[in-house]
Design a protein around this nucleic acid. Structure first.
Length: 413
DNA sequence: TCTGGGGTCCTAGGACCC
DNA sequence: TCTGGGGTCCTAGGACCC
């Protein structure tokens, strides 16, 4: 079996874009973000600065650290352009995020040469046409290609020969594996397992006892490079959500109501734009001490109307607060909608079982809500998001990130 | 003057049905 | 009436990924 799976991953993407746009940032420790680090340059990573870290902590680690606000529209444009170059070789491209994609070139080697040659061309073209460094891994499976691109970073290429792939894989640390985070790494370390080779030689029953049946079986397979996943050009979304950090706000109606309407508005608009609706609504309330609680409900009929989502979320948050009467401050609110269906499928169902008439898609009030959403959606199409809506919301802005960043973080539904 | 925002998948217990 | 087993769905929480 030949190694035809490529994993292409732009290096320190946001930070590299900023260094390209402003050459004075070149070679310097810098991050994109403010209150929170969204991306760090390699120079910043050398100080231990990581994405997701608070800006305050990052500055402690690296006092001369430069903070840049970010050019989010450019990230979208340049990320698209880089992935498009991969797509010039094969239609079999699976985009994982803004800066990362898998491709299977098995069907196009007769046109462009062996996979390693294609990978070299991709790297050369991304550098020449876009101006950014990109690392590529080539292997027999997605998992190994991804590991290879991580090993290749920064700005490198690693091709894993199937003949010697296990020798390559087994020397590497377990945390390079997909699905091994801090908790699993620590659990494995307690049993003396720190390399993928040691993991591969650990008996299956032992792994399952340690990590549960699903995770144990998966990791065991990946440690022998048995990865069943194929490169898929399309993956349908299973949920859509939105969240907002609030700082520390009183757990009161006047705080959570407008915030929930704002979140419901964003989710509802996204769902409707893709003709989707969902049966399960989940809210998450994070308290001041950062502990968080979730509460969900599954409806008989799928919904996407902003007012319906907002009212259900309000009920759920009230229930959460009623169960935690001692918590007086909340630091984050989130809504997520899952059990998604296409609207064409939804309309075939009889929407029975909802007590509140307004929440029933087919009812008079439900129809009115649909019409109101349609109107809002159309106005926004013409005049932009902020032309209308349930905005004017006094959301805590101190900890929030720019709207453009939210859009980048969203995946295709 | 600590910790953003958008996702996926798994687990475990309970309800409910056959 | 009681006991048992299997399957599915729902809920809440958690690990992990970018």
């Amino acid at each position: 079996m030949e190694a035809t799976v490529l994993h292409a991953d732009l290096d320190a993407f946001y930070a590299s874009v900023e260094q390209m746009l402003d050459p004075s940032l070149h070679g310097k420790p810098m991050v994109v973000g403010g209150g929170v680090v969204l991306a760090a340059s390699y120079e910043a990573k050398a100080f231990g600065v990581l994405s997701g870290m608070s800006g305050w902590r990052a500055r402690q680690l690296c006092p001369q650290l430069i903070f840049v606000a970010g050019h989010f529209k450019e990230y979208q444009r340049l990320g698209d352009a880089a992935i498009k170059i991969v797509g010039d070789f094969t239609p079999l491209v699976e985009r994982v995020s803004i800066d990362e994609a898998f491709a299977d070139v098995a069907g196009c080697t007769h046109l462009f040469g062996p996979p390693a040659e294609i990978a070299r061309t991709i790297r050369r073209r991304v550098r020449a046409e876009i101006g950014l460094p990109i690392s590529v891994g080539v292997a027999r499976t997605k998992h190994l290609a991804k590991i290879a691109s991580q090993v290749a970073k920064p700005d490198g290429l690693v091709v894993v020969d199937p003949e010697t792939e296990l020798e390559f894989l087994h020397d590497l640390p377990v945390e390079l594996m997909w699905g091994v985070g801090p908790v699993t790494k620590a659990r494995l370390a307690e049993c003396g397992v720190t390399t993928i080779g040691q993991l591969a030689r650990t008996p299956g029953w032992s792994l399952e006892q340690l990590l549960g049946p699903a995770a144990g079986e998966k990791l065991a397979a990946l440690a022998w490079n048995r990865d069943p996943r194929e490169v898929k050009t399309f993956r349908r979304a299973r949920s859509a959500g939105a969240q907002s950090a609030l700082g520390k706000k009183p757990a009161e109606e006047r705080v959570f109501r407008p915030a929930l309407w704002h979140l419901a508005d964003r989710i509802g608009a996204r769902l409707r734009a893709k003709s989707l609706s969902g049966r399960t609504v989940t809210v998450r309330v994070r308290f001041a001490d950062l502990r968080s609680v979730t509460r969900s409900v599954t409806l008989a009929a799928a919904v996407s109307a902003t007012a319906t989502l907002a009212e259900i979320a309000e009920d759920l948050v009230r229930a959460v607060l009623a169960h935690h009467p001692d918590e007086r401050k909340i630091s984050l609110l989130a809504i997520s909608v899952s059990h998604l269906k296409r609207v064409s499928e939804v309309q075939l169902e009889l929407p029975l079982g909802l007590k509140d008439e307004g929440r029933r898609p087919g009812s008079k009030k439900g129809m009115a809500r649909g019409a109101a959403d349609d109107a809002v959606d159309r106005i926004r199409e013409r005049f932009g998001w902020h032309a209308v809506g349930y905005g004017a919301v006094a959301l805590g802005t101190a900890h929030s990130v720019p709207d453009e960043f939210r859009v980048l973080a969203q995946q295709e539904l």
